[in-house]
């Protein structure tokens, strides 16, 4: 039961983490600017790590499936990589830009 859920974490965790990061990226820069604490970078970094963990969990638990289910898991794995890449770019942006800049 646990494994069957973990299989699909590649499909679910990175896209959700990216969506959350994108949304928070519209809110946290205002807080960063006021408090001089890099919340945006921290949140984005945590979500990036969570995404990578989701991909790894999906990969590790996807053995011994019938072909059509294997297809779903493999597709999720590849999709996850695209979102990990997007999150990496977002994390890089937090290190390059000043949160107060308009």
């Amino acid at each position: 039961m646990t494994n069957s859920w973990l299989r699909y974490t590649g499909f679910i965790v990175p896209p959700l983490a990216w969506a959350l990061s994108t949304q928070l990226g519209q809110i946290t820069p205002y807080i960063d600017c006021r408090q001089t604490i890099p919340w945006t970078a921290a949140v984005c970094g945590i979500l990036l790590v969570a995404s990578i963990a989701g991909v790894a969990a999906s990969w590790a638990t996807s053995t011994g499936l019938v072909k059509s289910k294997r297809f779903v898991v493999d597709t999720g794995f590849l999709i996850a990589l695209a979102f990990v890449f997007a999150l990496s770019l977002q994390e890089a942006a937090t290190m390059l830009l000043d949160s107060c800049q308009r």
């Binding site: 977002q90 830009l97 000043d98 308009r102």
Partner: peptide, 21 residues
Amino acid sequence: AGLPRLGESFFTASSMAIAVP
């Protein structure tokens, strides 16, 4: 539109990332 540059950069990142698929 005058949004924070850091927030905008997240959309730049995604706009670049979509070039991958």
